[in-house]
Amino acid sequence: MEKNTIPFNGTKEQEEKLKSVIAEHKGQEGAVIPVLHKAQEIYGYLPIEVQEMISEGLDVPLAEIYGIVTFYTQFSINPKGKYQIGICLGTACYVKGSGDILEKVKEILGIDVGECTPDGLFSIDATRCIGACGLAPVMTINDDVYGRLVVDDVADIIKKYQQ
């Protein structure tokens, strides 16, 4: 079972928007991917509830939609947190130990890459090079950048955002 990190709380407005997107694309060849893009714009992510609406609306099996969503990295089945943590796994950061930083963040928050904490506060992404190799290894939290990190720095940094 996929960990259900955060309950779905889509609004009526979001549902109406999605329905009109589906109506716009219904019957077209290759409708699934553009609809998924729009759905992710509307909801921020693609939980089972949204995928079921798309399956029903476009008459495409849920298994096929889920297959597409998990194939492409742009699609996310988990919401993003209030604080989006990015750990750079580009070459420079990686050789400077960003893998260990990532493991520490995962351990502290109890979630995996691509997931969101149940309180909706944090999500983790493993990013490619963000162009700050001079500061390697680098972690970003929303627009804040933390460089030249060691594993022991991580807990204090996260604590700042938990308050």
Partner: peptide, 27 residues
């Protein structure tokens, strides 16, 4: 499952080395 029976409860998920045949949300 999909083409002959149109039951469609399994499909390829993920990609590359992680590819598996599974049901939606790994149910």
């Amino acid at each position: 499952c999909k083409t002959i029976q149109t039951v469609s409860v399994i499909d390829a998920t993920e990609r590359g080395f992680k590819t598996t045949i599974a049901s939606p949300f790994n149910k």
